[in-house]
Simulated scan of single mutants.
Amino acid sequence: MSNYPLLNLFWTMLEFFLWILWFFLLFKILTDIFRNHDMGGWTKALWIIFVILLPFLGVLVYVIVNGRGMSQRDLKQAQQADDAFKQYVRDAAGTGGAGAAGGGHVDELAKLADLRSSGALTDEEYQKAKDKLLA
């Protein structure tokens, strides 16, 4: 039989979870301090010292003072990542903003297929043009 009651086990798990949550919040704030381009170097240094020397008070004050800015920077970073991903997909698919001049093979193949279906190209001419385009 154990001398560690079940309620103590739950309390220990809660404390462990809160410590993990605390470290997550602390690292989130430290990364936000470095990511904030509105602050100068000395301001960043003072915030870091404040957050490290008085962690609970420093984190609470930082969230109160810069909470709105933190969410705006997170949103801006997410939008930049989304835009970069979309641009990568456009470049990989060959349908970038430059169109056919930028190497839009998909657009050219669609035009060739339209010409073939309208009867302007024979199957042999279509195949030759397609092979030339993809080469």
Rank of each mutant, 00 (worst) to 15 (best):
Met1Gly: 12
Tyr4Gly: 04
Trp11Val: 09
Thr12Cys: 08
Met13Lys: 15
Leu14Val: 12
Leu14Ser: 11
Glu15Asn: 09
Phe17Ile: 13
Leu18Ala: 05
Ile20Val: 11
Leu21Cys: 07
Trp22Ala: 14
Trp22Phe: 15
Trp22Asp: 15
Trp22Gly: 13
Trp22Asn: 15
Phe24Asp: 04
Leu25Cys: 10
Leu25Glu: 07
Leu25Trp: 10
Phe27Ala: 04
Leu30Ser: 01
Ile33Asn: 01
Ile33Gln: 05
His37Cys: 04
His37Asp: 15
Met39Ala: 02
Met39Val: 03
Gly41Phe: 11
Trp42Arg: 12
Thr43Ala: 14
Lys44Trp: 03
Ile48Ser: 05
Ile48Glu: 01
Ile48Trp: 01
Ile49Gly: 11
Phe50Gln: 02
Ile52Gln: 06
Leu54Val: 12
Pro55Phe: 02
Pro55Val: 05
Pro55Met: 03
Phe56Asn: 06
Phe56Thr: 14
Gly58Cys: 06
Val59Cys: 07
Leu60His: 10
Leu60Met: 14
Tyr62Ser: 05
Tyr62His: 05
Val63Ala: 10
Asn66Thr: 01
Arg68Leu: 14
Met70Val: 09
Met70Trp: 06
Met70Pro: 00
Ser71Ile: 13
Gln72Asn: 08
Asp74Asn: 14
Gln77Leu: 11
Gln79Lys: 15
Gln79Glu: 15
Gln80Glu: 15
Asp82Pro: 01
Ala84Ser: 11
Ala84Thr: 12
Lys86Gly: 00
Gln87Phe: 03
Tyr88Ala: 13
Tyr88Met: 09
Arg90Ile: 00
Ala93Lys: 04
Gly94Asp: 11
Thr95Gln: 14
Gly97Ala: 14
Ala98Val: 05
Gly99Thr: 04
Gly99Tyr: 02
Ala100Phe: 05
Ala101Tyr: 09
Gly102Val: 03
Gly103Ala: 03
Gly103Cys: 02
Gly104Asn: 14
His105Lys: 14
Asp107Lys: 02
Glu108Pro: 00
Glu108Trp: 02
Leu109His: 03
Ala110Gly: 06
Ala110Leu: 11
Ala110Glu: 08
Leu112Thr: 00
Ala113Tyr: 02
Ala113Ile: 00
Asp114Pro: 01
Asp114Asn: 00
Leu115Trp: 00
Leu115Val: 03
Ala120His: 01
Leu121Trp: 05
Asp123Tyr: 03
Asp123His: 06
Asp123Arg: 10
Glu124Asn: 11
Glu124Trp: 06
Glu125Cys: 04
Tyr126Ala: 02
Lys128Arg: 12
Lys128Ser: 12
Ala129Gly: 07
Ala129Phe: 10
Ala129Val: 03
Lys130Val: 06
Lys132Glu: 06
Leu133Cys: 09
Leu134Lys: 14
Ala135Pro: 01
Ala135Glu: 10
Ala135Val: 05
